[in-house]
Design a protein around this nucleic acid. Structure first.
Ligand code: MG
Length: 431
DNA sequence: CTATGTAAACAAC
DNA sequence: GTTGTTTACATAG
């Protein structure tokens, strides 16, 4: 069995095909081809072994694709909910594909950890399978990117926000999604006793010019999305400090620090009020004139020299430093937006934004195996025939996670693309 | 001095 | 209560 690059895909001990090529659910080809891994990566029909299903090491989310489009695509002519009421959580997009993110099954949300990200998929696969096969050369010899310190700690919030937005199709996320993303990689954001970090996130979002608020989410939702400016997408993000008010008239060091503050009483009162009325006026103006936002007077410092991009992610997120370090992993559950996440289909071809529905339906699809079975039942009920063969394919992903030794997670996980073929190999889906 | 995090006031929803 | 804007303060370097 060959993938699109002509590389041989070996059958692993788990009855997974394993491609040596690194792919990503954010691969534009993948997105444009309607999540069809077969067509995108040239998986052609082949005699397939009927693999054990679900596989022992099943697919799980990588952090970077937590909010990405993980689809289970299946062409059905009859609404799934008519065939199977339990499939209520499934959405159908315009093409009649049922779509559902896999997040609801993800152990990331039940057995969270401070994940150690490894650079290449083969490492994770090795960890899972105990395989001793050496890594492919093309994977082990990556370009000498500026190794971004990926420990998550001591990375500025502005950079983290930048990263999570860059990792999202459309470069926009809701505040809660940003919270969740950062919470997964910043230890101090996982301490339940600390809530100030959210304040800091909002502070950075608001003050840093790289982050702006997009349109209100298609009217009905009050959730606004934060997005990267075009400039930020191209040139990276700059220090939030640069956008702070000109400190030239700052109170002198240890001169009269406390008294002044106590006297003034209100920290943001005056200016906040100004800003509020400014925004109100802006909104009014927008409604009446319909012109884009005109920047009111802003007295932030002049940005003469662009911040040295070297210390900020310029474009392509540098791969995480390969690390086998084993850091202790807290077992307490992290707070994330209520599951499940659904793909927003309000904008057909545009990058999907995810909105959390809460609470999750009671009888929601409990696991991916059930999900697959429901879809297959629907497929058969729609008049199709055939025997389904499951052929999980392990694609090396950009980042994989290996749980820390003391993690409650029973098994290590990787990001596996599970594809199922009908008997003629003409169809596949993934979830 | 800069960069950063954090606390907090305050408005708006 | 959450979201967003802004100022104030502390601290590391
Ligand atoms: Mg901003």
């Amino acid at each position: 069995m060959l993938d699109v690059f002509g590389n041989f895909m070996a059958l692993t001990a788990n009855n997974h095909w394993r491609s040596p090529n690194q792919v990503s659910s954010r691969d534009p080809r993948y997105l444009q081809a309607r999540m069809n891994y077969n067509s995108v990566y040239g998986i052609t029909s082949a005699p397939l072994p009927l693999a054990a299903f679900p596989p022992a090491a099943f697919q799980y989310e990588t952090p970077d694709s937590v909010f990405g489009a993980q689809h289970c695509g299946f062409p059905v002519s009859t609404p799934l909910t008519e065939i199977c009421p339990q499939s209520e959580g499934l959405l159908q997009d315009q093409a009649g594909f049922t779509t559902q993110t896999q997040n609801q099954y993800s152990p990331l949300f039940t057995a969270p950890s401070t994940p150690q990200e490894v650079e290449h998929g083969w490492q994770g696969l090795q960890a899972i399978m105990g395989s001793a096969s050496p890594p492919p050369d093309d994977l082990s010899a990556m370009e000498g990117e500026p190794r971004l310190e990926d420990r998550g700690d001591d990375v500025a919030y502005a950079k983290l926000i930048y990263q999570c937005l860059m990792d999202t199709p459309g470069h926009q996320l809701s505040l809660r999604e940003i919270y969740a993303w950062i919470q997964q990689r910043v230890p101090r954001a996982q301490d339940p006793s600390s809530i100030g970090w959210k304040n800091s996130i909002r502070h950075n979002l608001s003050m840093n010019q790289a982050f702006t608020q997009g349109e209100k989410n298609s009217g009905d939702k009050r959730v606004s999305l934060w997005r990267l400016t075009e400039d930020a997408v191209k040139n990276g993000v700059q220090s939030t400090t640069r956008y702070r008010r000109d400190p030239k008239r700052r109170a002198q060091r240890s001169g009269t620090p406390a008294p002044q503050r106590q006297r003034s009483g209100a920290k943001g009162g005056e200016a906040t009020r100004r800003a509020a009325s400014r925004l109100k006026a802006q909104s009014r103006a927008r409604r009446s004139i319909g012109s884009p936002h005109t920047q009111p007077h802003r007295r932030h410092r002049q940005l003469h020299d662009p911040y040295p991009l070297s210390s900020w992610p310029s474009r392509a997120a540098a791969p995480p430093a390969p690390s086998q370090s084993q850091s202790p992993t807290p077992n307490n559950a992290i707070a994330v937006p209520a599951m499940p996440y659904f793909l927003s289909i309000t904008t057909p071809s545009a990058p999907a934004s995810l909105t959390a529905t809460s609470p999750a339906p009671d009888a929601f699809i409990p696991d991916s195996a059930t999900h697959m079975q429901l879809n297959f039942d629907a497929w058969k009920a729609a008049g199709h025939a055939g025997v389904i063969h499951h052929a999980p394919i392990d694609y090396p992903y950009e980042r994989l996670i290996i749980p820390a030794p003391d993690s409650t997670m029973a098994s290590p996980y990787t990001d596996t693309t599970d594809e199922s073929y009908l008997n003629d190999g003409s169809f596949e889906f993934k979830f």
